[in-house]
Design a protein around this nucleic acid. Structure first.
Lengths: 221, 221
DNA sequence: ATAAAAATATGAGATATCTCACATTTTGGA
DNA sequence: TCCAAAATGTGAGATATCTCATATTTTTAT
């Protein structure tokens, strides 16, 4: 994690910083850069900032009693991280791991819990965000159960890929998509036979066009 | 729909009315009773109240272009109705239909949109509610894909049943559970063979104990 | 460097679920 | 009241997905 200060803000012309994302605390927001796999949040450490993703994407993973992890969800640009902790409804902490270089705005969680808790404009905005996610996720669940693995896998590989290379572990993918490892490998080998993906060092190169056709309108959220 | 006035509140000793559910508007809340199948919200009519279910349960259905409906979700005691309209994130209106006699507290949506929009205490509370639903639904989706139909159907029949009788249409159930009509009927006939359900006039009598064992810890939310 | 654990890989048989075909019963509207 | 549409019900074959068994490769910890 690197804090990006005013002077180093040459970076920031890569994207426009949103305004007013943190209501009354917007002026206190600081920009941080995380490289791929450098945890934004760790399940065993307190969440001391409320985050907002300016650029990049990340996965949320749950840690089981036996130490194994499973992917719960993905986060993209324009999404908050730690908002359920701010709302005090998240009991079980998660890991949040960037899939590629990711830039986040952050404000102190402590400040948020005092200042933003009384900021109706921010609270309404956050409510809209959380409500929008609820709708998205309901939609996703409904549509998801009507597609077979090849479609869902295509959508998944497209979303989690970075620069045309898919690098997720098959064991985790199988669990996230709710299918057996065996069947995932079977489908993956079909993708290979059909030229949709090709194994390269450290992952699979994906044929985005072919996969988009398969992924139909599945929106992983 | 019947408004329950102060004098007719003999009813209200059936349950305790919650306080402070509508923040600054709590004093304006009025109690209404809906009988089974008497719509609380209709997709073709504006939503003029923000509701809170005190007792009973209801289903949310979506109306397709061709006029067909599909069940989106269920609502239980302690849940709001119309909160996504209050938040202005729900584009597509739904029907909300009680499954049994249902009592709701309601306040004017117009008043809510002006008064509650500036009430940080209410907004934070609503945020917790919506955030909690988001967590629930994510959990449900994750667990759901690991159970086969017999388990999900058991959970579904238990939840939508009223006084031990299940009355949902098989066509709608099949769609909600995301399985083919044929397979639903197949599983249902197994339930009958095993004595878990028995056909009666207008529905099926369910063996709650047997179904609870099958439903495991599936929480339809 | 080595052993243990995890991830990758493949085969074969079982089953949950789907598609299609068709008959009967119930419901809703003219 | 009657007809058309929807809902219910059953059979048979196809397939998506699962379970189990087992081997190889890669990663991790000592």
């Amino acid at each position: 994690m690197n804090k990006i200060t005013a002077k180093s803000q040459g970076n920031s012309n890569k994207f426009k910083l949103p305004e007013n994302i943190f209501g009354a605390l917007s002026a206190e927001a600081e920009l941080y850069a995380f490289s791929a796999n450098d945890p934004i949040i760790r399940f065993d450490q307190p969440i001391d900032k409320l985050w907002y993703i300016v650029k990049g994407k990340a996965k949320i993973t749950m840690v089981h009693e036996d130490g194994k992890q499973s992917i719960v969800h993905f986060l993209h640009e324009g999404e908050y991280i730690g908002e359920l902790t701010f709302l005090e409804v998240e009991k079980q902490h998660k890991n949040v791991i960037p899939l590629c270089e990711t830039f986040c705005l952050g404000v102190s969680m402590e400040r948020a819990k005092t200042v933003l808790r009384d900021d109706p404009e921010f609270l309404f905005h956050l409510n809209q965000y959380v409500g929008g996610k609820l709708i998205q996720r309901t939609w996703f669940a409904v549509k998801n159960q009507n597609y077979e693995l090849k479609n869902r896998l295509a959508a998944y590989m497209l979303m989690s890929q970075s620069e045309g290379i898919y690098t997720q572990k098959h064991t985790e993918t199988a669990e996230y998509l709710g299918v057996s490892y065996r069947h995932l490998l079977h489908t993956l080998s079909q993708f290979r036979d059909q030229g949709y993906v090709a194994k390269v060092r450290g992952g699979y190169r994906v044929d985005q066009h072919a996969l988009e056709a398969l992924a139909k309108d599945i929106q992983l959220v």
